[in-house]
Design a binder for these strands. Structure first.
Lengths: 211, 211
DNA sequence: GCGCTGGGTGATTGCCGTTTAGTAGCCTTC
DNA sequence: GAAGGCTACTAAACGGCAATCACCCAGCGC
């Protein structure tokens, strides 16, 4: 009880955390909560509490909540981009590269489900539209890498149907649909995930690409 | 100023709206707002205002907000179910029936985008999980009709790969992915929708079904 | 010493869904 | 025809949310 503190035990004000290091702390805390509890679960207050700072303080470092979470998503998507770059540099058949990319995409989505949802399923009040621009640019880079490989397939005349763009987008859409449904409806009586992936990709390639 | 009213001009209380007719009014107002502004835009207060009633009154007729909106979705999905039933009764090739169903599914999703989103993309704070049970049952019926047709294809040995379940789910997922992305990212440089639909479905059928 | 500035604060605003406690009017039942 | 009860309704409030406001204070260059 007897307080030996000069200042009464009051504010416990967090010391300055000079410069951008506080920013990193916030991102770290936000990431923990966001990954565990998703977009709605990661509230400004919870993040601030975890850092040990008032909720207002977060607005010193970020414009709003979405800026925090999108920055987290950015670094997740960087990972996907890196994978795509790495794959597109491999000296193997373009078809194999496209397949590897789609496979990596699915794995990425399932492993980074909350980031994936925020970026690719965001709607309904989240992330109003334009704020995503930075993140979307990253996504576009991933898409470009992917389309580049599909274009090679098209250039060698092995696209069974559609244009390069429509074939690429159809492949993307199909994979997105699989992971989106798996994430959204985890309780549905799905066939084993690996089988689903196989059937979808096999069918897609057989249907869109000639040997 | 001089009020000639017995009761001061106060409550303008909405008369009883006896029985379930008020319920219908609420659903109608909710549907208007929900279709125009989506899940987040359709707030309890806005709906109540539109009906001309206090927000509390809505809780006389519905357990919570989700019950209102899901009931709207239910009637939308009934439509899809009706289409699927009608298609599955047609005396045509099973492959053609499956294709018609998927095509109807895509059209349905694009035309009832808010209902579709709520039922098939619901996540992030919406519709916490179990509340969807009634709606999900309807969705399952649609899926069953669909799987029935796919099963016929499988029974006649024309499934190029996968089991009946995995092939059906892959087809569903692919179509879901297309509409989900089109709805979520309307500003992306998509190929013309009709071409995308065509390429996706053609590829899928060519890849999963043998003549 | 002085003032500026950047990181910090508590209180407040304006939404939201939902709950509580109470009320107005009809329907029985005596 | 009064008493009681039921049903549809209400205003006010609660707790949570993102975001803003007006202020505070330590450290720095001068």
């Amino acid at each position: 009880m007897t307080t030996t503190l000069k200042k009464p035990q009051r504010s416990a004000r967090k010391p300055k955390g000079d410069g951008h290091m506080r920013r990193g702390e916030i991102l770290q805390a936000a990431e923990r909560i966001f990954l565990a509890e998703g977009y709605q679960g990661a509230t400004i207050r919870k993040i601030a509490d975890e850092v040990g700072v008032s909720s207002t303080a977060l607005y010193m470092h970020f414009r709003d909540k979405d800026e925090i979470l999108l920055e987290i998503c950015d670094s997740a998507i960087q990972l996907l981009l890196k994978q795509n770059s790495e794959i597109s540099a491999r000296p193997i058949d373009a078809v194999a590269r496209v397949r590897l990319m789609l496979d990596a995409y699915i794995t990425f989505a399932l492993e980074n489900s909350n980031a994936y949802r925020l970026v690719f399923c965001a709607e309904g009040g989240m992330v109003s539209e334009d704020k995503q621009t930075a993140t979307e640019a990253l996504g576009d880079l991933c898409y470009d890498k992917f389309v580049g490989a599909v274009r090679e397939i098209g250039a060698s005349g092995r696209l069974r149907t559609g244009t390069v763009e429509s074939a690429a987008q159809a492949m993307w859409a199909a994979c997105h649909g699989l992971v989106a449904l798996l994430l959204t409806k985890p309780n549905f009586h799905w066939a084993p995930t690996s089988e689903l992936r196989g059937v979808l990709l096999d069918g897609l390639f057989y249907g869109l690409v000639t040997d």
